[in-house]
Design a protein around this nucleic acid. Structure first.
Lengths: 206, 206
DNA sequence: CATTCAACCTAACGTTCGTTAGAAAATCCG
DNA sequence: CGGATTTTCTAACGAACGTTAGGTTGAATG
């Protein structure tokens, strides 16, 4: 069997590490899909290497260890959804708080269900990944949480109890992330789920 | 090193399988804790056996395989929370629908967070357990879903769209199960989380 | 006391895993 | 083209895994 074709349209402007970036990105993508579908410890480096046309040992030219690879995948997952939500919130900066929250929910859900296998891999694998991996993700995760705390506090009003803001955030994020376990592209409509979710929320103060 | 002491106060009334039931229950409990804390594939049968004072091979006297053991643990998990919620709903059969839903939420949450390591193991491990294991749990899981569908339909009214009932159920269950990932016994108060959740729900029709 | 049988142990089998060292191939540069 | 550098492969290491076959123990039974 011949080797798998390399992705021909990759960034060529990097003089420092010329060609490794393409293979590295390809490995990360395959790893994200595998982590999302099978889980972290069920992802074999031999299988992963085969999916990108390599042998297991060759992965170690691009990553120091399996844990390092997982950290990179999951960090990309948080940053992807965080950037998407942040950008959408900036674009809706002058809208009412309730509408901004709906936007955040929509972007978060769409990123998890359709846009980014990194984000879904992060959500599904985080609970059972080695603690050394989780430890290196607390910072990005905290930043993302702060994003939500802001939107929700805006909607509940400045005098809302911190406990209420926190529990509403956890309830909403939990409801969204849970969709990863039941969502079926043919059967389900994310927009309908979002409407059902929005119907629960109070009118808002902004 | 001497063997670990057996649990002396176990049911003695079973003449068919005299003494294996005690050890079997002990194995199931330790397995549930291990699955909840580390995950299915991170649960080593050697470690599990050591926790109940056995060697790995001895487990095969009580269970045919690791998958069979996991099925038993998770099935107990569904049945535990299902029985608890069902019983609570029966006891509140004459209460308004919204109050009955609150009761169901409270019992479900308490079972996951405090009462049953089988239930929490089921929720945390189900996504990444082998498909042969998941297949043997669909029946009990469907029964439990029907319980929730009933309560939520009662609250939304008989003419509520099935899609709305379904998505509200999935949102609520997702929010509750997500608590397994953030709940910290000292920091968090399940009742406060429940109040924040109930504040979202409509007044109800019953 | 002899026998039976439940319950556990010992010891290993074959497989797969993450990881590594060094050789080989591919690519780039002058 | 030739040498240097980047990238991949080969081959193996040691460890851990689920599982199994057959032996050992101790208590109950007739």
């Amino acid at each position: 069997m011949p080797r798998q074709a390399r992705n021909p349209n990759a960034a060529r402007a990097a003089p420092a590490k010329p060609r490794a970036a393409g293979a590295r990105a390809e490995i990360l993508e395959a790893a994200a899909r595998m982590m999302r579908d099978r889980g972290y410890s069920e992802m074999s480096l031999r299988d992963l290497a085969a999916q990108v046309g390599m042998k297991a040992g060759s992965l170690y030219y691009h990553f120091a260890s399996k844990e390092e690879l997982a950290v990179e995948v999951m960090r990309l997952g948080v940053e992807t959804v965080s950037d998407a939500v942040s950008e959408a919130l900036d674009a809706a900066a002058d809208r009412p708080a309730r509408e901004r929250l709906e936007t955040a929910l929509r972007v978060h859900l769409h990123t998890l269900l359709s846009a980014s296998e990194f984000s879904s891999a992060h959500i599904r694998c985080y609970p059972f990944v080695p603690e050394t991996v989780r430890g290196r993700l607390v910072a990005v995760r905290r930043d993302y949480d702060r994003l939500w705390t802001g939107v929700i506090r805006d909607m509940l009003g400045e005098d809302a109890a911190a406990e209420d803001v926190r529990y509403l955030r956890l309830a909403l994020i939990g409801a969204m992330n849970g969709a990863l376990e039941w969502y079926s592209p043919g059967r389900d409509d994310p927009e309908a789920f979002l409407r059902a979710l929005m119907r629960l929320l109070p009118p808002g103060k902004g």
